[in-house]
Every structure is written in structure tokens, then in C-alpha cells.
């Protein structure tokens, strides 16, 4: 890994961390959901500061260039994240559906009760 790439990764990680903290403070993101990104940033920073780690891992896995190992790891982590997001979205759609249906039925019931009490 070149020095420039390492510096770039560290700077970007720092900016990402600042942005994440900012979003949490504005209550735009829950801490539970931010933990993943802090871990992600941590891994990138550690590998950038100690490129030897990436080299050792790359050699063990038979990957020629350590930077490829970093790409591979990032793609893998992101895929896992996207997949789990898909599951979460499905669950939320399901829950929203139940809420909408229950509220529509309750509202109708309330209207009917209203009508009856007026009569």
C-alpha cells in the first residue's frame, strides 16, 4: 500500500466518523445502527496504520497485493450489511402493514360507534 492511499483512507475514515457522530447527535441515526460503521471505520484505520497486518493476511490467503485484500474485505462487509438491510426492510414493511391495517379498522369502528351514539 502506498503512503498516499494510507493517508487517504485515514482521512476519509476520520471524516466518516465525524459525520456519523454528527448524525447521531442530530438524532438522525440510532447508536445501535451506527456501531457497524464505527467498527468498519476502525478496521480501515487499523489496516492503514499497520499495513503489515494487511500484508500478512494477504500472504496467508494467497492474495498478491495487500490492497486487494482491503477491497475484498470491504466488499464482503458491505454485502453482508446490504443483505441484512434487505431483511430489516422486509420486517419493517410487514410491521407497517399491520399498523396501517389495524389503524384503518379501529378508525372505522370508532366512526360506527360515533354514529350509533348520535342516533
Amino acid at each position: 500500500m502506498s503512503l498516499y492511499l494510507r493517508i487517504l483512507l485515514i482521512v476519509m475514515s476520520f471524516l466518516a466518523a465525524v459525520y456519523a457522530v454528527h448524525q447521531i447527535r442530530k438524532s438522525q441515526m440510532k447508536i445501535e445502527n451506527a456501531i457497524y460503521w464505527f467498527m468498519f471505520i476502525l478496521i480501515v484505520v487499523v489496516l492503514s496504520i499497520f499495513p503489515e497486518l494487511a500484508m500478512i493476511l494477504a500472504r496467508i490467503l494467497g492474495i498478491e497485493s495487500p490492497v486487494n485484500l482491503i477491497y475484498l474485505a470491504m466488499i464482503f462487509l458491505l454485502l453482508v450489511k446490504v443483505f441484512s438491510q434487505s431483511i430489516k426492510i422486509s420486517q419493517m414493511e410487514y410491521k407497517i402493514g399491520i399498523l396501517a391495517q389495524e389503524s384503518a379498522i379501529m378508525k372505522k369502528k370508532a366512526e360506527e360507534n360515533d354514529k350509533e351514539s348520535k342516533q
Partner: peptide
């Protein structure tokens, strides 16, 4: 009429009727 507060698509709408 049952009025859904958000659009649920045809399946969700029919299911509301089933539930009712």
C-alpha cells in the same frame, strides 16, 4: 369504507379486508 393511512399495495389492501 376502510381508509388505509399508507399505500399497502393490492395484497395489503385485500388483506385489510380479510382481517376486518
Amino acid at each position: 369504507v376502510l381508509n388505509l393511512p399508507v399505500n399497502l399495495g393490492i395484497g395489503g389492501a385485500v388483506q385489510t379486508g380479510f382481517l376486518y
